[in-house]
């Protein structure tokens, strides 16, 4: 199959313009025969929303703009980042990722870990997600994560234990540290986790980060694809927009698991029991 990482620069607060951007990129990706197009975190809204959160929030099932995107996925799949507000939970806003395949909304993941320290203030404006699960797609079992979720390795472990063949992380990661090579120093952090998770979960890891600048903060780009076993399939440019298209072979999951028996020998029930004890102790 072919995957495309859409390393775009959304316009802050302008859902309509960003829907157009997504539709354009979807068509471009379609012309490359991509089967799956992954857009970055909050791609429909921009990142530094603050009080704009409630104004750009939408319900993916009924919002006419969102449905334009859904309608444009005939024969392909897309992961889209947006601000979610469901009619059943009015006034609760989530930083969410939707997996759409062939005009059907298969799954929505709500960001669990909302960075709120220093330059980050997500928990001031968003409600936290409370669930992690994998779901069936035309390309095997997939799990979604959003940005900081990926840096808490327990989240990837849950997806791996839940049978993920592919972990997809969408991101709006600002770059920091200019003492290194031709990238922000923080880009290394994401690549390290991507390589490690793909190595030890023997699954594909797709990381779609955004580019562009909001209020002085530069988003680092450098989206990447790792195949099982820590093999880098492709990385997009740092700083600049790119549509990174790569062919991946899903059989690599089975191949890697024949060679490295982490998955066979995994003991989630031991982990769970121990974790429950640790969590209880932390609560005491």
């Amino acid at each position: 199959m072919k995957v495309a990482l859409a390393q775009v620069s959304p316009r802050l607060g302008d859902v309509k313009a960003n829907v157009e951007l997504h539709l354009d990129v979807l068509e471009k990706a379609r012309r490359t025969k991509a089967d799956l197009v992954v857009f970055p975190e909050l791609g429909l809204t921009g990142y530094t929303l603050k009080d704009l959160v409630e104004e750009v929030a939408l319900d993916p099932h009924s919002d006419p703009l969102f449905r334009k995107i859904t309608a444009r996925t005939r024969g392909l799949a897309a992961v889209v980042g947006f601000v979610e507000e469901r009619p059943s939970e009015k006034g609760l806003f989530y930083n969410s990722a939707a997996f759409i395949a062939d005009r059907r909304l298969l799954h929505v993941h709500r960001k669990i870990y909302l960075p709120t320290n220093g330059m980050f203030e997500e928990a001031k404006f968003f409600a936290p997600g409370r669930d992690l699960r994998t779901f069936e797609t035309p390309f095997g079992r997939v799990g979604l994560l959003i940005c900081r979720d990926f840096l808490h390795y327990g989240a990837s472990y849950v997806l791996y234990s839940s049978g993920a063949d592919m972990i997809i992380c969408i991101s709006a990661a600002p770059g920091r540290g200019v003492g290194g090579g031709d990238a922000f120093e923080t880009s290394r952090m994401w690549e390290l986790m991507g390589e490690t998770m793909s190595y030890f979960s023997t699954a594909f890891v797709l990381y779609a980060n955004r580019v562009g600048i909001e209020d002085g903060v530069t988003f680092a780009g450098g989206s990447f694809i790792f195949a099982p076993g820590g093999r880098l399939v492709g990385r997009a440019a740092y700083l600049d927009p790119e549509l990174l298209v790569r062919r991946i072979d899903l059989a690599a999951v089975r191949e890697a698991r024949k060679k490295w028996l982490f998955k066979r020998d995994e003991k989630p029930e031991v982990i769970l029991r121990s974790l429950e004890r640790a969590a209880r102790a932390a609560e005491d």
Binding site: D14, K50, L58, E214, D215, G216
Partner: peptide, 22 residues
């Protein structure tokens, strides 16, 4: 607690009408 981005927009932007305002 009136918090908007510099390069963003003030209050009153609704999805779909943003472009005209901008």
């Amino acid at each position: 607690d009136f918090l908007y981005p510099y390069s963003g927009r003030g209050p009153g932007v609704t999805p779909g009408s943003a472009s005209a305002v901008l």
